[in-house]
Nucleic acid binder design. Structure first.
Lengths: 186, 186
DNA sequence: CTATTCGGAGTGAACGCTCAGTCCGAGCGT
DNA sequence: ACGCTCGGACTGAGCGTTCACTCCGAATAG
């Protein structure tokens, strides 16, 4: 039974997202999770470890969501659209997870070995890029530049959506995918 | 004499950027700045106020840098290039400032009234967008979407540069400006 | 001399984490 | 079937430490 671990994860996600790492004391996390403080330390070495494990879990969840309906058989344009929309959708539908990831990724506590997790899950994304460049449909740019021109745009838009600066409805989403495609297509 | 206030700002910038908000105790900031702890509280109400004031100061600095050589007389394409390159340059040349801004902007401590500061300084950026849309050179998109498609890309690239994932030399910078232009031009 | 600025030991509050003790179900002897 | 023992998951009051912030005497300026 991992019910308690999950309860601790959920409480941590909620508290850290809404109040920040250092305003989410272990005592509160335990209370919110319905367990004793000591129980946290049966599942995690310390608070930093708890945060780090939660981060890895969410990053994996995100990677899965991005590639939810991916298939290498589809046309490049459609593969792109799906990955892009999936990415945006995840961030829109999971504000707590997004706030947590963003907060931890930008903090100096992020462990170097944790920072690179994403790479191994996102193989299909690189596959897509290589195909596109090889076929001459995409510009010959580095994968990192591709990511910044497309996925980072999606993330930045969802952040503005979350803050209320824009409304990301279907129309805007389509405008944005098209614009991102223009940025990378030859 | 504002020498002490500046010393406190500098020490805070350095410590918070490298160690994080909560691993930069006032005692250390005071030591690094060469002042007593109490002196900090002569210039700032509390630590949160100090951080917030520093954030505003850096945001203003950034806005000035972005528009350093801007002129409404230049062709749209050139205006765009300058703003984009200036933005990237600032973030590349000011890693501490960037780390601080990014960290604070993504934390839940950011005051709502502080979050909107940038808008008033970036009037010329909106001017550029309005002109471009009016002249039919740019797509008819919202200013926020423009920002995500261009400036956020610049910022995201410099972050990768700072982390060592890519090297942002002149060539890559030019590739990126061109790609961003393709994203927004009609 | 007076007014103003500064310094840093000291204070109370809050934190992460520990550990002695509780609780409960599985296993065993009768 | 039943009572007893044992082991480990779990608890939370308490420990040691650290922090933001205060306060008042010292230093400095006018």
């Amino acid at each position: 039974m991992t019910g308690k671990q999950d309860a601790i994860f959920n409480a941590t996600l909620e508290l850290v997202s809404e109040r920040g790492f250092h305003d989410a004391p272990t005592s509160l996390i335990a209370q919110e999770a319905g367990v004793g403080v000591g129980t946290i330390y049966r599942y995690f070495e310390n608070k930093e470890d708890l945060i780090d494990e939660l981060y890895k879990k969410l990053k994996l969840q995100l990677a899965r969501a991005m590639l939810a309906d991916y298939s290498a058989d589809l046309p490049l344009r459609e593969r792109f659209r799906r990955i892009w929309i999936n990415t945006a959708r995840y961030h829109i539908d999971h504000p707590l997870e997004t706030a947590f990831i963003e907060q931890y990724a930008n903090s100096p506590f992020l462990k170097p070995e944790t920072a690179n997790i994403h790479a191994e899950y996102s193989r299909p994304v690189f596959e897509f890029i290589e195909n596109g460049v090889y076929e001459g449909v995409l510009k010959d740019l580095s994968p990192e530049l591709f990511a910044s021109l497309t996925l980072e745009v999606a993330i930045s838009l969802t952040k503005k959506h979350r803050e209320g600066a824009i409304v990301l409805d279907g129309d805007v989403l389509e405008q944005a995918v098209d614009a991102c495609w223009d940025a990378i297509k030859r």
